[in-house]
Each structure stands twice: as structure tokens, then as C-alpha cells.
Write a protein that binds this DNA or RNA. Sequence first.
DNA 1: AATAGATTACTACATTTGTAGTACTAAAAC
DNA 2: GTTTTAGTACTACAAATGTAGTAATCTATT
Lengths: 128, 128
Amino acid sequence: MELKQLNKSELQIMEYLWKLEKGFMKEIVSQFPEPKPAYTTISTLITRMCAKDYVGFEKLGRDKHYYPILKKNTYFSSQLKSMISHFFNDSTTQFASFFTKETDLTLDELEALQKMVGQQIKDKNTVK
Amino acid sequence: MELKQLNKSELQIMEYLWKLEKGFMKEIVSQFPEPKPAYTTISTLITRMCAKDYVGFEKLGRDKHYYPILKKNTYFSSQLKSMISHFFNDSTTQFASFFTKETDLTLDELEALQKMVGQQIKDKNTVK
DNA sequence: AATAGATTACTACATTTGTAGTACTAAAAC
DNA sequence: GTTTTAGTACTACAAATGTAGTAATCTATT
């Protein structure tokens, strides 16, 4: 399956499904904020997403139990890599710099990050 | 101007304009890979982007000299923040963890990151 | 058993996006 | 000056997306 960019509505529904892991129509609809779109609007969107193999379903009687085919990690990993590749000239270092500056990390967050990176450096050295 | 998600074609053109900084039609068209879309296809896309205030132009005789109104930093900062907010529950730490794992940073990159973070910690402490 | 609610399938239309043609005219090339 | 090329405005259509109605029928409630 070729992974393309999810549009806004698709992303919203995927987000709900990733959280639910699996859900009937009612459960998905209940995730939407008020004013909710019409039942049939959501139904159409989900049907189209099934056709695109983003979402699958298990038929239980008349009803369908929907679940995500597209994995959250897969999608975001690809999103992140696409961002790095397109806008930071494939430089993860440039991206990291941008990230730490733009998100204005707190001292605690920076220290947590430093710890994590330090651990990964240790892991890399151990592997060597 | 409310910042919304650029679609694929818009992003492609913005990318070219950010690189060019300013450019005539010919210069923008020349950025496209072969087989290039029709001249009028690109023209329509740019015209629509002008209407959305992503792109502006300076009229020089008959021709238009296009430039980006939407700043690269503005867009990606907003993209990044949206990603963190929507998929990592507003946790920049979780995102950082995901980032360092998914992009499989080299030892050099990790060390460069550690250095950078260390510097920012120093900066934060100095400010205090 | 009857009624109300829920869900799917089908259908339809508006808007947005992708694509590119023609006409006209300015600018460049000869 | 003439011809060719480039660029804009206008136009148009297909596909994708956003939205939601109706009909039929299953499920839940009474």
C-alpha cells in the first residue's frame, strides 16, 4: 500500500480509531466534538477510507466493527521523514535544531532529552 | 491569515518559491521535474495561491514577480506543533523520543544533538 | 408484537483540487 | 517590421473531498 498524505478529515477519523483501537459506528461518531457532522457524512468518509485500505472492518451481524489498517507509528514516522527530507534537506541535525528552538523546550524537557540522547549514545557505543 | 494545511501541489510550489525567494513564471516552472505539468496548470495553481495569500507578486510590465507571503519557518513550525499536539498529546518529550528512535540517528548526529541540547540548557540556566 | 433507534447502502450535490486548452498580447528573437 | 515565444486571463472539465438526504432493515426498547 502506497502511503499518501491523509487529508484533514481522514486524519481526524484515524486519530479516533487509533485511540479506540477498534470501534462501531456509534463509538466513532461519539468521538467527534459538537456540533457533530451528520451520521451519514461520517459513514461516507469511513467507507471511502475502507476503499483506500486505511481502515478495515469485521462484519458483526448488520454492523461493522472498524479498525485501523494504517498504523499510527507507520504514518507519523513517514510524516516525520517526509518533513525532514523535504524541508531540512535530509538533515536530521538541522531538523533537531529547528525542533528544539521552535518548541521552546523547558529546562526539564531539555534535560530529559539530553538523558535520552546520552542513553542512545551509550547504546550505540555498546553495539560497536 | 489563518494557516491551514497546504496540499501537495501548493507545498511543492511553496518549496520552490522558498528556495528562489522570488521568481518569474519561467523560473518557477523550471523547478518542476520532467515531465512538467502544462504552463497553464502551474499558472492556475499559483493564481489560486495568490488568492489564498500564500503567494504575492510584484507586477513588472506584463509579467509578475512572485514571492512567498507564507514564511517557511512559520509553516513548518506550525506543522511541527500540530504534529506534537495531535499525535503526541502535546508532549514534546514523547515526540523527541519518537524522533530520535524513528530517524535512527548516527553516533555523530546524536553527539551533535547532545551538544546542542547541552548548549540550550546552559542558555536556560544563564537566563535564570 | 409494535415502535423507536441505529446502521448501512445508495444517492446526490457543492466545493476544492488537478489539469490544461484557447485567446490575446507583451516581450524576445530574427 | 515580422515572427516566435512567453505569460496572463479566462474558461472548462474530471476527480477528489465534504456534506448529508432517503430507503431499507437490523437491533434495541417498550
